[in-house]
Nucleic acid binder design. Structure first.
Lengths: 198, 198
DNA sequence: CTTAAGTATGTGATTGCTCACTTACTAGGT
DNA sequence: ACCTAGTAAGTGAGCAATCACATACTTAAG
């Protein structure tokens, strides 16, 4: 069954992401990936010269999806606090639909050698952080958020919440709603950051 | 060079932890470990029947050290807020002295098969969480912490902070002081949680 | 419209390497 | 004499990557 290179590449990347979730990123072999796609192991090397470049393509795909979700989140809302909520919800949603994402951050593929892959993920986290900082600053200017907390610090608190919830969700056999619990705790944190008007 | 089994076991466990720090948990091979200890690779199997049981021994060691640090942190302070700070500092300190710790949570050794190891680490995180919850509750009873935030929720915010900072520290080339930045942001968060006496 | 040449996608077999683990044997301590 | 801690030399499995070869598509000439 012959397919176009673009289509095949996409299939392979999708299979890697799926396998990474199910068996762990470090267990994803070229053989297992090829079997999941339904081609021979050697066929993979027609589309990617090495396994490392395959992982880079995976990172690109993930980065693209994340950027798209962020844009959509910002396009749909306008108040700074609503935008923060939308961004956080988008992030949690992406983790749910790509559960391998947190594991990728700590896999051997990423952490040893493969400096490009590592830089790609770091850049992603920094861009998300920057979006949150911008909205926090707008919220302060609008008088809705406490001025005594620097936007950069508050952003670290919020992004850490995403990561903490993701770890909790991964380790405890995903037995709660990541989005539900995450948004509930986000509300708690946002209440603390909000100017009290009582 | 012949040594007692107990001593050798301890040496081997220490070598695994050191190697895990330096090259990543999944790169730790029996050969590399043996070389670090200064014995033949086969010698390892005199002391541990399989590599998995070796990792379990490592987990035991780490769990013991963590529990010891928590106890020391609690013994040295008495106010609830100081105790929270001491616990968080102890946790950050352990990550600095065992940088493989966050990676271990997502390593292949832990996540596939080896359910015992996974349960051991999950139990550790839950016990830390419980210690924080207890101190938060004491802080509320003493009238020092806002009552409108449940201690369980606040504890998630605090432990997430540890994990978020650890990720940041791992991905960035460890180019900031994990303890310094972590404790600074902890202060920010604690100020938000503290009853305002102005 | 047909056909031959060229190219893109695919395969089975193999290579060279690393790994966890085994086996047969040896030396030191009591 | 007898364990105990050690070794050197394997074994078989799994891995990424390669190679010679096959088959489907594309294109251009007659």
């Amino acid at each position: 069954m012959r397919k176009s290179a673009e289509l095949r590449k996409a299939e392979i990347v999708a299979a890697v992401l799926d396998l990474a979730d199910r068996i762990g990123p470090d267990r994803v072999t070229t053989g297992a990936t090829a079997a999941a796609v339904g081609v021979s192991q050697a066929a993979l090397f027609r589309h990617f010269p090495t396994k490392d470049t395959l992982w880079l393509a995976v990172a690109d795909q993930v980065a693209g999806e994340l950027a798209m979700e962020w844009e959509r989140a910002l396009a749909g809302t306008d108040g700074p606090i609503d935008r923060i909520k939308a961004l956080m919800a988008a992030q949690l949603g992406q983790i749910v639909s790509t559960p391998a994402l947190p594991m990728l951050l700590f896999s051997r593929e990423l952490n040893v050698g493969n400096e490009d892959l590592r830089a790609a993920f770091r850049g992603l986290l920094m861009r998300f952080q920057a979006l949150i900082v911008a909205e926090l600053a707008r919220g302060q200017d609008a008088g809705r958020l406490r001025r005594e907390v620097a936007p950069e610090d508050a952003a670290v608190l919020l992004t850490s919440l995403v990561q903490g919830m993701a770890i909790r969700w991964s380790l405890g056999a995903r037995n709660f709603s990541l989005i539900g619990e995450g948004m509930r705790l986000l509300d708690v944190q946002l209440r603390l950051l909000t100017v009290n008007e009582d």
